[in-house]
Nucleic acid binder design. Structure first.
Lengths: 208, 208
DNA sequence: ACTATTGGATAGTGTTGATATCCAAGGATG
DNA sequence: CATCCTTGGATATCAACACTATCCAATAGT
């Protein structure tokens, strides 16, 4: 199909598609002349994926590029892909290595993960994300205690198990890759939304 | 204290504090002369809150301003405050009212909330957030089925109950307000981080 | 032949969240 | 009391990000 058709079907402007091509988020169309190129269904699918990650997942273009590069790599396994995606999700918090509060929080996070017996790489950004919240919570006078954390841990474990279960089927590789990306990026938003809705509901029930 | 001291103690530059003052995130210090003003502990506390919402919650300055304005209002109740915070959290997705896919997804969301018996205002942004993910999931060929949603709903309900329980104590109003903000903004990140960690763990356990 | 579209390149826009600079006035210090 | 430092206040500038606009020459379609 022509780029204008790709634009119509994807809901993105031609300019934006050109921009994504320039940024290397997609391969160029097959040139059929100096001023013509042919795009296929793969391009459309790719644009849908990019759009979902941008608009729903709110990922920066650069992160999407890295994710797509990993997903296109034929040798990469699903677990490795998940790592790449989570790393791209960030946040890449600039950890002040000299701040004692930060070091303490980070140590607490590492200890917690060890205690739970979780197999998580040492440089997983989620460790920093959690440590960052611990620091902020403490600075605001809300010390982080395990009993307060427990419900979150249990919810996380339960969801983690459920999501990992969805991967064990033997679907085609492309599909499995898409499922990994979708689960990681989109279902995170689903959880976010449902959590907020449930919170409003409970608040209304008790205070409204 | 002087603004330079406030800067030292908050970890923000004088420039940034001035910027926040300009933006109306904080009242000005009490002027003790044409070129001097005195800041109190309230200012420091306020800056810590702003910093947590900006750096951990990744909220835009404008959203923080609205949240703080609501929190400063003496008449506003905790449930009302929660609504304001959630509204400020967004995302303010520009819903294309004419898109049939969108309408269908939004109807599904409304039906789900009704079926669950949740008391959630009709204009809660989380409804749109959820609908948005439904649209994206469907476009990518991952239809949203209730069985897939169930674990997320249960996790959300369980956390919602837990969090609402923390509000029923009779602490001082300022503290309760802070607790509402902190729970909403910071524990959301805690859940996010733990979810990612659990996901990586389960993935490692089965595929690693 | 003529109009519209394309690929490719380059430049510009709008938003956000700071930073930088400047100035005059007012303390603080020796 | 002279000199330097800091402050408030205003204005300007910057950097990142994700587009968006414009231009051009070469076609493709009619």
């Amino acid at each position: 199909m022509k780029i204008s058709e790709l634009s119509d079907r994807s809901g993105l402007t031609v300019q934006t598609i050109k921009f994504y091509l320039r940024e290397g988020l997609m391969p160029k169309g097959a040139a059929t002349g100096a001023t013509r190129a042919e795009y296929g269904d793969g391009h459309l699918e790719r644009l849908r994926l990019i759009r979902a990650m941008r608009e729903v997942g709110d990922l920066p273009v650069f992160a999407i590029k890295r994710i797509i590069a990993a997903a296109d790599e034929p040798e990469v396994g699903l677990h490795e892909l998940l790592g790449t995606v989570q790393y791209a999700l960030g946040p890449h918090v600039d950890a002040p290595a000299d701040d004692p509060q930060w070091r303490a929080a980070r140590a607490d996070v590492d200890a917690l993960i060890a205690e739970l017996g979780w197999r998580v790489t040492a440089d997983a950004p989620a460790r920093d994300l959690l440590a960052q919240t611990f620091v902020a919570l403490r600075k605001l006078g809300f010390p982080v205690v395990l009993t307060e954390l427990r419900p979150y841990i249990e919810a996380a474990m339960s969801l983690g198990e459920h999501e990992a279960g969805g991967l064990s089927t033997d679907e085609p590789r492309t599909r499995a890759i898409h499922r990994t990306l979708v689960t990681t990026v989109l279902y995170e938003q689903v959880l976010l939304a449902l959590h907020r809705l449930a919170r409003e509901h409970e608040s209304a029930r008790r205070l409204g």
